[in-house]
């Protein structure tokens, strides 16, 4: 469980990035944090594993105040993938990179090997096992960053822009994996600008704007509220845009996914025929 209580955060240069954020994320939830550039999303999630400590207010992770513990202790339970993979990668090979966290947390060598193989396979990186992460493409580097955290199977995963650089297929694979993690009871927090990715999973959406939370609810509700989205600098998913343009024809307002769209359209055409 992650709880922030009226959290304020000011960077050393004087920028006040969080202005009173109170949020409760229960075990087993799937939450997408969205909102405009500079809204404070990254700053907020860096509080979830103690990378940043609030200037005012407090953050509790499993009832422990992050001020009273260390990032090293929190990391075992809260895995964090950085927005920019280059902030995270430093080993000489992809394999070493993925094994690093596992070694750190004292996994047995035989288990390390298994987990590394599993993570390489999950993120389609097996052929790059021996390659330096710095010689990979942008999307590949992001997948190494994801693999190196998912490998140690933390109870909560916090992924800052997990779909950056991913093609459609990788993204769909990742999305299915995240959904699967969540059904196994893990807590998943993603920060993302990718409305299509969110539309396909329908998680709880927390919208941020200028250091504050401005909305909190199910994706199909938030992503179809045009006024709210504009405030948070988000464009509705393309399917929802189509139905917003057909709103005079009496379609339900919460259609965000292609298959949902097909179903309502077929039903409508069927009814007309009768």
């Amino acid at each position: 469980m992650i709880e922030t209580k009226d959290v304020y955060f000011t960077y050393p240069n004087g920028v006040e990035a969080l202005k009173g954020v109170s949020l409760l994320i229960n075990d087993g939830e799937f939450v997408a944090i969205m909102g405009q550039n500079g809204a404070g999303k990254t700053t907020l999630v860096k509080h979830f594993n103690g990378l940043l400590k609030p200037t005012k207010g407090e953050v509790l992770v499993d009832s422990i105040n992050t001020r009273e513990t260390s990032v090293a202790k929190l990391a075992r339970n809260v895995g964090f993938v950085f927005q920019n993979p280059d902030h995270q990668l430093f080993c000489e090979s992809v394999e070493e990179e993925i094994a690093f966290g596992l070694r750190n947390f004292g996994f047995e060598e035989s288990l390390i090997k298994k987990r590394v193989d599993w993570a390489l396979n999950l993120l389609d990186l097996t052929k790059y096992r021996q390659t330096s992460p710095f010689l990979l493409s942008g999307g590949e580097r992001k997948r190494v960053a994801l693999a190196s955290v998912l490998a140690w199977d933390p109870k909560t995963v916090v992924l800052d822009e997990p779909t950056i650089g991913q093609d459609h297929r990788q993204k769909e694979k990742l999305r299915q994996f995240i959904v699967q993690l969540n059904t196994q009871g893990k807590t998943v927090v993603v920060v993302t600008h990718d409305v299509e990715f969110v539309a396909e999973s329908n998680p709880r959406v927390v919208l941020m704007s200028e250091g504050k939370i401005v909305a909190d609810g199910l994706a199909e509700k938030i992503l179809t509220d045009e006024a709210l989205l504009t405030k948070a600098s988000i464009v509705p998913p393309q399917i929802s845009q189509i139905f917003l343009q057909l709103s005079d024809l009496g379609f339900p307002a919460n259609i965000i996914d292609v298959y949902q769209a097909r179903d309502v359209l077929l039903k409508r055409l069927e009814a007309r025929r009768k």
């Binding site: 909102g35 405009q36 550039n37 809204a39 927005q83 942008g138 822009e161 950056i164 650089g165 600008h193 409305v195 504009t230 948070a232 600098s233 988000i234 464009v235």
Partner: peptide
């Protein structure tokens, strides 16, 4: 422009 929207919020990208 090499994947310029990956870090941008959608309205700004638009």
């Amino acid at each position: 422009l090499d994947e310029p929207t990956s870090f941008l919020d959608p309205l700004t990208a638009k």
